[in-house]
Design a protein around this nucleic acid. Sequence first.
DNA 1: CAAACGCGTTAAAAAAGGTTAAGCTCTATT
DNA 2: AATAGAGCTTAACCTTTTTTAACGCGTTTG
Lengths: 226, 226
Amino acid sequence: MNILLAEDDLNLGELLSNFLKSKGYQVDLTRNGKLAFERFNQKKFDFCIFDVMMPEMDGFTLAKEIRELDKKVPILFLTAKAMKEDKLEGFALGADDYLTKPFSMEELLARITAISRRADIGEASEEEKYQVGTIAYEPTYRILHLAEGKKKLTTKENQLLHLLVKNKNEILDRQATLRAIWGDDNYFNGRSMDVYIAKIRKLLREDPNIEIMNVHGKGFKLVIKE
Amino acid sequence: MNILLAEDDLNLGELLSNFLKSKGYQVDLTRNGKLAFERFNQKKFDFCIFDVMMPEMDGFTLAKEIRELDKKVPILFLTAKAMKEDKLEGFALGADDYLTKPFSMEELLARITAISRRADIGEASEEEKYQVGTIAYEPTYRILHLAEGKKKLTTKENQLLHLLVKNKNEILDRQATLRAIWGDDNYFNGRSMDVYIAKIRKLLREDPNIEIMNVHGKGFKLVIKE
DNA sequence: CAAACGCGTTAAAAAAGGTTAAGCTCTATT
DNA sequence: AATAGAGCTTAACCTTTTTTAACGCGTTTG
């Protein structure tokens, strides 16, 4: 299981990282929210642990960005002792739990176990495979199973389609997507994204029930009729 | 839009109720959780605002009961300042937001606007299907089945028509609608809405029994004769 | 009843999106 | 090192969607 850990205190960070690794998890440690966000978009994570107070981008903002793209990945916050209002903000973002420093390693492990068990029900994680209308899609291998045969997607095609599919029937926010895939939501990246939407639409044309609809000024939404 | 308000402090209750009414919402004010729950079962509400501390039945218990019946209706809690663990409990129940007393009316309005927008346009994802006079309407796919064939609606057309249809035979309040769709009820958005009312009227002209009537100074009402 | 306001409607301006193709930047290959 | 190819970005052009403006008419209110 892959864990994304964002902690600016390098001592604590290494400590946690080593502990979790010793328990059989794979851990990516990042120094701040910004780096964590980039990492999150490059790799698939099953669990996130964020310190709330970090330079560049704090844990809550980070969680907000991530929630735009992934509604499900469990997020656990590490907060300095007994903050008041701050905690709530975390929960409103769909946090699954929080720990107040100082905490014991065992406590952390217990939470991770409990939450990931809950999150895992019905999900075989690792090998992802989707059925989009009549078309099978394997983001892990970037393969689209069309009627005429397998089609290998490019990096960007795959990233975008993956997000669309993960957020089926929901609006995929334009800005958040741009930041996730292109790292920046300026005008030109926006146009680039439009170009990729066009490419993907062409690829999925095979099944007339699939539609990527535009929500003016907001983003795109993948819907599949009946 | 119908709001269910539960607040035992009658002064505050009346104040809130009047303020919200002045902003175009219909408000049912109840004195405690028990009465609120009864009211909830008699009428359809689009939004709930509950004080946490109330006699008979507190806000959290109330929310728990309501969530048993309705998983989606937005709930906002009003809490006395800075409770600690208690607050968290609210979020676990699927609260959408909370406000800590004292708060400003504007702040409340902003939250309501934001949440109901999110709930409204974000995910209308269940297969809805309406019959408006002789015209079938599928808001999920933004399709209007006219005599001449299918007509695809634009984002705004769809949002507005959806609200009209959901509130058939009831007045769709102008200001509340503007905040729900446009996020702000300023003069220009108002004119924009009028333009869309005109568009929709044109689309629905096919069936002479359909009428979108104006209620001067209040809003619009979709009625279907006999 | 007149001034102010709200609404109906149409047209024009502005913004956002759809699509195609040319250009650029890598990387792999000769 | 030059060439070719793949992938991505930028540019260009066009369409659709939304907003803003303008004008006229009905309604309300003092």
